[in-house]
Design a protein around this nucleic acid. Structure first.
Length: 258
DNA sequence: TGGTTTGTTGCAGC
DNA sequence: AGCTGCAACAAACC
């Protein structure tokens, strides 16, 4: 479910509830759900993997994490974390994180970091990346403050497309390569969105879960837990160039600034 | 068949 | 104090 493009799809699927009042709010979330009843949906928004329901005096932030799911005008057997009833149907969320966000959403998030968003600004992320030269490429692509909405699939695919080895140091990438990286995260995320809608997401993976490099045909490296983020990685040692050596860390050096 | 995972948080222990 | 590793969530997928 849960990388940024999947949340864009969710946002579109619930559009019929925009402007409708919450008539019923229940579920096993510990939040005070009674507060929601009577409030009107001002908008459905998303910031990366965060699905946002903007109501009259508060917003809801729903994060599907790894196992979360939702149903529109349907119910699963398991009990919902949050179920919202409207005059024209209902929206049910399962196994997710639900939080209130007080105050305007425009102040709660840095919108330029949302890879799928209209306010995406690659210059802003490049500035942040330049400030963290010791950061590994594989960790940069999972850092939601840099690339909000990018997840492990997007990480593996973007590193393969740009031919960047996941253990490259951000500070060692040539300027043009860094710009290419920032640009490709957004380009691939929209490819992901289109392929997911068409039901062809997996069919278009070049690296994620693959065993052989489609370019040079040698076996991919399958790493179980790479980088600080300790997530699995699929990459080609031959055609993904390793910029800098992340192993070279002097014991006496000052604490590495990422 | 059953181990793995498109993710994040909080907490225990060190 | 600040880190690391684990549990929790709970279901589709290979």
């Amino acid at each position: 479910m849960p990388e940024g493009p999947s949340i864009v799809i969710l946002r579109e699927e619930v559009a019929a509830f925009t402007g409708k009042a919450v008539e019923r709010a229940e579920g096993n979330s510990k939040l005070d759900k009674s507060r929601l009843v009577g409030q009107t949906v001002q908008s459905f928004r998303s910031w990366g993997k965060h699905f946002l329901i903007e109501l009259d005096d508060v917003s809801l932030r729903i994060h599907l994490l790894l196992f979360g799911s939702y149903r529109i005008n349907e119910r699963k057997q398991s009990s919902p974390r949050l179920s919202l009833g409207f005059a024209n149907g209902e929206l049910n969320f399962y196994a997710c994180s639900v939080q209130f966000i007080e105050g305007p959403l425009d102040e709660a998030y840095e919108w330029s970091a949302d890879v799928m968003g209209d306010a995406w600004d690659s210059r802003a992320v490049l500035k942040k990346l330049r400030a963290r030269p010791r950061l590994l490429a594989c960790d940069a692509l999972l850092d939601q403050t840099l690339f909000s909405g990018s997840g492990n699939i997007i990480k593996n695919e973007v590193l393969f497309r740009t031919r960047i080895h996941p253990l490259s140091l951000i500070g060692e990438l040539p300027a043009a390569k860094l710009r290419e990286l920032a640009k490709e995260v957004r380009v691939y995320s929209f490819d992901f969105l289109r392929w997911k809608r068409e039901g062809k997401l997996k069919a278009n993976w070049l690296a994620h879960t693959k065993t052989t490099c489609p370019r040079c045909k040698i076996p991919f490296v399958k790493a179980k837990s790479l980088g600080r983020s300790k997530r699995r990685a699929f990459y080609c040692e031959r055609c993904q160039k390793r910029h800098g050596d992340s192993e070279k860390v002097s014991v006496n050096a000052p604490v590495a600034e990422e």
